[in-house]
């Protein structure tokens, strides 16, 4: 079915809403068993892409093979091999957590005994056993999200699509969900995850695709993206905060930026070692006393901002 362990193959996918190009000629492959992070701001086309891959939306052009089946030619074969947890927690509030899972199990046409068994197992894995027999409307946001993701797993899908799974969750719930998602890969499930949070992509994804305005602007591992795309950054900490202005004026040609709160001047290192030495020499000549000076790799946020051109 899949070749070379490629489980999702996307070629020249396009979708427009009127004059807005939600997706423009998007192509990429996803290997079996990885977590792929689709990273981008609102309106980047992430949800449109997920909706096409989960057969909810027809593309205007291009092809997408999911688990070896064309999403347009054979949508029902695709549906029986995927799970989707969309942007909203899609649970029935008038059913209990357990009933929600069993209902989705029935709709995957699982035999009743298996549906019940898997529901029980998922309730345990997602820390919902205590609330299993309570109506879902009494659940907290984090619990709803976990139940939603658990529901999408009851069919034991080969690929799980998670569309912004942690949007709106508090940090603790977010962490719990992250741990659960990481656990999925151990069972061999391929995960395609969209997110606006760089931290989330950095922590979870083996491979990251950064999208902006319907196009792929960069891809690679978090490490690749940071080292290839972002410039190293020099952080200059002065002893006397009055001297911050002196430093910025002095180093004006290097495009410094100031973080007043922590009294740090940061300078992107665009021209390597030579530039670094030049900066230090000039600071020394001016006689400004430094508390610390540090050269570091950019954060994913800085990479992201460079790529999408948003500040």
């Amino acid at each position: 079915m899949e070749n070379n362990g490629i489980i999702i193959q996307i070629r020249n996918l396009s979708k427009s809403y009127g004059k807005v190009h939600a997706l423009e000629n998007v192509s990429f492959d996803v290997k079996k068993g990885v977590i792929l992070g689709l990273l981008g701001p609102n309106g980047a086309g992430k949800t449109t892409l997920v909706n096409i891959l989960t057969t909810l939306l027809r593309p205007d052009g291009g092809t997408a093979m999911v688990s070896g089946f064309d999403v347009l030619a054979n949508p029902s074969a695709v549906r029986s091999r995927i799970g989707l947890a969309g942007q909203f927690a899609a649970i029935d509030e008038n059913l209990t957590g357990r009933e929600n899972l069993e209902l989705v199990g029935t709709l995957y046409h699982l035999p009743r005994a298996i549906a019940k068994k898997r529901a029980q197992k998922l309730l345990e894995e997602f820390s919902l056993t205590d609330a299993a027999n309570r109506l879902a409307k009494t659940y907290s946001g984090g619990m709803r999200r976990r139940l939603d993701v658990a529901s999408s797993l009851i069919g034991e899908p080969e690929i799980l699509f998670l569309d912004e799974p942690t949007t709106g969750l508090d940090p603790q719930s977010r962490n719990e969900l992250w741990t659960a998602i990481e656990g999925l890969v151990n069972r061999g499930t391929t995960v395609l995850l969209t997110t606006q949070y760089l931290e989330e992509a950095d922590r979870l994804a083996d491979h990251i695709i950064i999208m902006n305005e319907g196009k792929i602007v960069a891809q690679g591992t978090a490490k690749d993206l940071k080292s290839n795309l972002g410039k190293s950054v020099l952080e200059v900490h002065v002893k006397d905060r009055q001297k911050i202005t002196t430093i910025t004026t002095l180093l004006k040609q290097f495009d410094p930026s100031v973080n007043e709160a922590v009294e740090v001047v940061t300078i992107p290192i665009t021209m390597g070692t030579q530039m670094l030495l030049e900066i230090i020499r000039q600071v020394e000549l001016a006689g400004v006393e430094l508390a610390d000076i540090e050269l570091r790799k950019p954060t994913l946020d800085e990479v992201f901002l460079t790529l999408t051109g948003k500040k």
Binding site: L56, R79, I82, L84, G86, A89, L107, Y108, S151, S152
Partner: peptide, 17 residues
């Protein structure tokens, strides 16, 4: 509006159901 229909449409169930 709650996204439940999207979930159902992604399942291998009969759409008429």
């Amino acid at each position: 509006s709650k996204g439940l229909i999207d979930r159902l449409r992604s399942l291998p169930m009969a759409r008429s159901a």
